[in-house]
């Protein structure tokens, strides 16, 4: 690539070409390169969108059409007729809502404790918490499966959200940083006024962490909605499937031949909530990832 484009806003320097002209060329080049990259980023989505609305004949047309004509909703009708897609959505929303609420509350509570309250072993426990973030989920997948079997909740939604009710290590870490940034005078004044520690948490500090909570809510929504491997091992019955699981098996539901139109329509429906969240919460999401650096 062209290294000239890397140069940051230039500072006074002996000018050859005229600074204006030089920086205009550099800017044009920047726009051009970014534009090409965005094209590559967006074309798959355009293709997804157009495939979802194509008739079976047009989908196999070559050269392919980008704007389908005629536009058909047949693919969507088909997926709701052939499968229980609305049930998958309902299941995913349930799992997401339950784990989201619980994660937000218990992560906040633990973060408050780690950030504000003094008790023996606190720092050691926090190191343990940091350590758990590095363990790949697969390392404890089989025993988790056994736990769910022992509890008799295999093949229920409870198995999918149960491990995610107690506060996530990463969220606690993130919120703790946030709590540490709040002035201690707030707690002290409230304690003076006779609040106990839980009232300090609930009435004074928690409302101030709203921006961080928003970020975590978005991250947990995406994690829960997109989760695949865990539902895959716990769930067997179609009526219990989450969207990712339903979608992955959908491709086999036409026999050996894949019906691309309905499959892309289903893919679009599953991706849509995430896309909406991405745009609605772009500031919180991108800001949250920038400051903390999660997801590979």
């Amino acid at each position: 690539m062209n290294n000239a484009t890397i140069v940051r806003p230039s500072l006074p320097r002996r000018v050859h070409m005229g600074r204006r002209a030089q920086s205009r060329i550099a800017n044009l080049l920047t726009y051009f390169l970014l534009g090409v990259g965005m094209l590559f980023t967006l074309i798959p989505f355009v293709w997804l969108l157009s495939s979802a609305f194509k008739t079976p004949e047009k989908i196999m047309a070559f050269p392919p059409q980008f704007i389908p004509s005629p536009i058909t909703f047949e693919n969507f009708r088909y997926i709701f007729e052939k499968t229980h897609f609305e049930v998958f959505f309902y299941n995913s929303f349930t799992v997401t809502a339950v784990s989201l609420t619980s994660q937000l509350f218990f992560s906040s509570l633990a973060a408050y404790g780690f950030a504000r309250l003094r008790f023996a072993g606190r720092n050691q426990l926090f190191m343990v918490l940091l350590g758990t973030m590095m363990i790949p989920f697969q390392a404890y997948m089989i025993p988790r499966f056994m736990i769910m079997r022992t509890l008799g909740i295999l093949d229920t939604l409870a198995a999918v959200f149960l491990p995610y009710l107690f506060g996530g290590a990463f969220y606690i870490f993130l919120l703790r940083q946030y709590y540490l940034s709040l002035p201690r005078e707030l707690d002290e004044a409230a304690i003076m006024d006779g609040c106990n520690f839980f009232q300090v948490f609930w009435y004074i500090l928690l409302p101030l962490t709203k921006p961080a909570l928003y970020t975590i809510a978005v991250l947990e929504f995406l994690a829960s909605w997109n989760s695949f491997l865990e539902p895959l091992i716990y769930l067997n019955t179609q009526s219990k499937f989450t969207v990712a699981l339903g979608l992955s098996l959908f491709r086999y539901s036409f026999g050996s031949r894949i019906e691309w139109g309905p499959l892309m329509a289903a893919t679009l429906l599953v991706a849509l909530p995430c896309l909406i969240v991405c745009f609605a919460a772009q500031k919180e999401l991108i800001g949250g990832i920038a400051t903390t650096g999660i997801k590979g």
Partner: peptide, 17 residues
């Protein structure tokens, strides 16, 4: 944000697409 979009979509929809 545009460059970020692919990361919010889950593994299964991305794989099928």
């Amino acid at each position: 944000t545009i460059y970020f979009i692919p990361s919010v979509v889950g593994g299964v929809p991305v794989a099928l697409l």
